[in-house]
Design a protein around this nucleic acid. Structure first.
Length: 427
RNA sequence: GGGCAGGUUCCAGAGUGGCCAAAUGGGGCGGACUGUAAAUCCGCUGUUUCGACUUCAUAGGUUCGAAUCCUAUCCUGCCCA
């Protein structure tokens, strides 16, 4: 299977420019994907473009990862209802560094290889371009009519919040990136999410008009969930690749909880397992969906890919303890190191020994420890039966939290809802 | 620059002087059921020492009383120039 066939089978090709497949078969091709420095870590939404680069490199081509230092200063309006808030320069610099460090993990940057991955930052070439130069050299080639016709900006043009000129410029800036990489690094292909199609095509257009060259592109469908909700979010927000922002346990749980219909797509997109193995897994899963074999395998593969084998094992161990039903007794019998092992990655909360020996009512306790944001929410949660201590449900708001509840003389396990755990440690 | 229409709680969107912490829908959270699923059903969804307190773009004002009326400012959309 060639690269495009492989990606097609995995469901990773949405739009493709004619000639792209031929180009990839003809020679080692340099291709790039852009990453937005909106945070100092990538999240699992970025995993799809990362995997595009991984597949590309495995197929013998040369991947470029572009960090959008310049584009991040402007903000991509594509399909967004409202303008994004601007990031200050320090934040951007920090974010770029964080993202760069993460990408290094997934791609082979060994310079001795002909198709070594490279990292580029578009701030490096935009820094020295003046506004006048830009509008004369680049703006001349693209009409406003062309730019406005893009679906990606339609929502903003027709909507009721407007679009600033800054944002409107975005597609030209991104388009120029492609032109620059084409001339500087012989980069002939851009990939990205399908929401980037408009921006990408502006780039190929610039390459054609300004450099009289031919550039190619394809996009990958945006991740969607079968129930139509947004991919990549949990109750707590984004699922990040950085273990400090999303623990490996939470990360593992995210994939483990994938709906059946989604898991079949995810395993093709997010793992590098081959076709035969994936088809077999799916077939088995359809027969016994309640065993969640597909989700387990999916979660395993990605957790190891993004974190490590060790992190994966912890996550499994913790999941078993936290989700088995009869574990109130087991919990009591754990030694301190066993407990800490399993709770690795569960948010930890500290509390004063003095406070606890005096005893605190459950509502105050939950609010003080910030497990719930306010007393009224804490009260409602307890009254709804949403709080458990050491795997035992709290029956009413009269419940007092004191030292009698301590596990190993220093821990209390608080559970909010079914899936949210907090380990309270006495200081 | 001119005219018109707007800015309401997470979102959409009611409310045009007291009955408004503010309808309804969505989303979110919790519970039951389950496969740590989907669907369904139920509860909650500004804060609180439960007496109150702070909210309806911002700042002033009228009134016993304002999200609702007045003035100024900021922002957005549409139309005209």
């Amino acid at each position: 299977m060639n690269l495009i066939e492989e990606l097609r089978w995995r469901g990773m090709v949405q739009d493709i420019m004619p000639g792209t497949e031929e180009q990839l078969l003809k020679e080692m091709t340099t291709a790039y994907v852009g990453f937005d420095p909106t945070a100092d870590s990538l999240h699992i939404g970025s995993l799809v473009p990362i995997l595009l680069l991984v597949h590309l490199q495995r197929a013998g081509h040369k991947p470029l990862a572009l960090v959008g230092g310049a584009t991040g200063m402007v903000g991509d309006p594509s399909f967004k209802a409202e303008e994004r808030r601007m990031l200050d320069l320090d934040t951007l610099a920090r974010n770029q560094a964080g993202i760069k460090a993460q990408l290094e993990r997934f791609l082979d940057f060994d310079p001795s290889k002909p198709n070594a991955a490279e990292m580029v930052n578009n701030f490096d070439w935009f820094r020295d371009i003046s506004f006048l130069d830009f509008i004369r050299d680049v703006g001349k080639h693209i009409t406003v009519n062309y730019m406005m016709a893009k679906d990606s900006v339609k929502r903003r043009i027709e909507g009721d919040s407007g679009m600033s000129f800054t944002e409107f410029t975005y597609q030209l800036i991104q388009g120029y990136d492609f032109y620059h990489l084409y001339t500087a690094k012989n980069c002939k292909l851009q990939m990205g999410g399908s929401d980037q199609w408009g921006n990408i095509v502006t780039g190929t257009e610039l390459v054609r008009r300004k450099a009289n060259g031919e550039a190619f592109a394809f996009t990958c469908p945006l991740m969607k969930k079968a129930d139509g909700t947004k991919f990549g979010k949990t109750e707590k927000g984004n699922v990040w690749l950085d273990a400090r922002l999303t623990s490996p346990y939470t990360f593992y749980q995210f994939w483990f909880n994938a709906a059946d219909a989604d898991a079949e797509n995810y395993i093709r997109i997010f793992t590098l397992l081959d076709k035969a193995e994936i088809e077999e897994l799916i077939a088995t899963h359809r027969q016994t969906p309640e065993q969640r074999l597909l989700q387990k395998r999916l979660a395993k593969e990605i957790t190891i890919f993004v974190h490590s084998e060790k992190d994966y094992e912890f996550a499994v161990k913790a999941s078993e303890l936290l989700f088995r039903n009869d574990t109130a007794d087991v919990l009591q019998s754990l030694t301190e190191s066993q407990l800490l092992d399993v709770m690795d990655g569960v948010p930890q909360v500290e509390v004063n020994a003095a406070d606890l020996s005096a005893g605190k009512d459950i509502v105050t306790f939950l609010a003080d420890t910030a497990i719930l944001p306010s007393k009224s929410e804490a009260r409602k949660m307890v009254q709804n039966g949403g709080i458990s201590i050491n795997k035992l449900k709290v029956e009413g708001i009269e419940k007092v939290v004191d030292t009698t509840l301590l596990l190993n003389q220093k821990y209390i396990l608080i559970q909010r809802g079914k899936k949210n755990y907090y380990l309270v440690t006495v200081k």
